[in-house]
Simulated assay, not measured.
Amino acid sequence: MQRTVLEQVEPVAEDVVALVLRGADGPLAPWEPGAHVDLALPNWLTRQYSLCGDPADRDSYRVAVRHDRLSRGGSEYVHLFLRTGRALEVSLPRNNFPLAPAPEYLFIAGGIGITPIVPMLAAAVGAGASVTLVYAGRSVAAMPFAEELRAVHGDRVRLFATEEHGRPDFAELAAELSPRTLVYCCGPESMLDAAEAAFAEQRLRIERFRPVAKQFAPNEPFEVQCARSGRSVQVDAGDTVLNALHHAGFPVPAGCREGVCGSCEITVLDGEPEHRDDIGAPPGRMYCCVSRALSPRLVVDL
């Protein structure tokens, strides 16, 4: 974890504030557009937020937090109790939504889903690509960074205030695209579902804040062999690998506990994992908050 100090809390839309976190011990870890961090809040909760500042700024990170009326305690604490000057720990950046090189991009964002798109848009423009941002929200006043983006990027930014003009027509947008265009989309589930229906899978990249509902075979118990310690941990049918490891004294990091953030990644040395995450675990890895085993035993690097 990196030590930071909360330098600024700035309202950037209705029910949305931007936090500027300055490194307390010198430069912060580098990051690339699409990355997010875990923010450890003083109320013992850890939440994931996309970095929406400038990757060239190694002195501070910027994130934005929407006040969720059904908050589980994270966004409510940020909006009601967090004040400048507070020391906060922030994880190293992780990137499950990287920006791939392309000559043309269509970025689609809904509401707080604009946060990973902000640095992507700047990077794509800086690389000389042809860029369009389609940004939808209930109203312009409810859309974080809308005026900032329009001021910087001009006609590249198309704002859709859905209360006045309705939602953008994704099928029409898809029909206009050249074969060289990559599409990046982040927003509410309804927007992501519409994007998946409209755009070819090979050109579409999305980031979800919530996991997609999936069906799996009934859970079976299995054993996790921790290679470095020589200990074995039993994972019951009603438990998760993450919880079983925590109860056994292995402090594996945990953020979302839903398979969307990647903070609980562990290395699998033997056995067959059953991947239940929404990220796509790389070979030899698994996200142990939701994933299980298809073999009676997994050997992991712990």
Rank of each mutant, 00 (worst) to 15 (best):
M1T: 03
T4D: 10
V5D: 06
Q8K: 11
A13I: 00
R22A: 15
G26L: 03
A29G: 01
P30S: 09
H36N: 04
A40R: 09
L41T: 02
L41E: 10
N43E: 12
N43Q: 10
W44Q: 14
R47Q: 05
Y49T: 04
C52S: 11
D59S: 15
V63F: 04
V63M: 05
V65E: 00
R66W: 11
R69Q: 14
L70D: 14
R72H: 11
G74D: 06
G74C: 07
G74M: 09
S75Y: 11
H79Q: 09
F81T: 07
L82W: 10
R86A: 15
E89M: 08
L92W: 09
L92S: 12
P93D: 10
R94L: 15
N96A: 15
F97Y: 15
P98Q: 13
L99R: 00
L99Q: 01
A102K: 07
E104W: 00
G111F: 11
G111A: 05
I112R: 08
G113V: 03
I117W: 11
L121R: 02
A124R: 05
A124Q: 06
V125W: 01
A127F: 03
A127M: 03
V134A: 08
A136M: 05
A136P: 00
A136Q: 13
A142H: 08
E148K: 01
R150Y: 05
R150K: 15
A151V: 03
D155V: 05
R158C: 10
R158D: 06
R158K: 14
L159F: 07
L159G: 06
A161Y: 07
A161G: 07
E164D: 13
A171D: 13
A174V: 08
A174E: 13
P179Q: 08
Y184K: 04
C186I: 12
G187F: 13
P188C: 05
P188I: 04
M191N: 00
L192D: 04
E196Q: 14
A200S: 14
L204K: 13
R205Q: 13
I206M: 12
E207M: 08
P211H: 12
Q215G: 02
N219A: 15
N219E: 13
C226F: 06
R228W: 01
S232C: 09
V233W: 02
D236F: 04
A237V: 08
G238N: 10
T240H: 07
H246W: 15
H247D: 14
P253K: 01
V260A: 01
C261A: 07
S263F: 12
C264P: 06
E272N: 03
E274N: 09
H275G: 00
I279N: 04
G280V: 10
P282M: 10
M286R: 03
R297H: 00
L298G: 04
D301H: 09
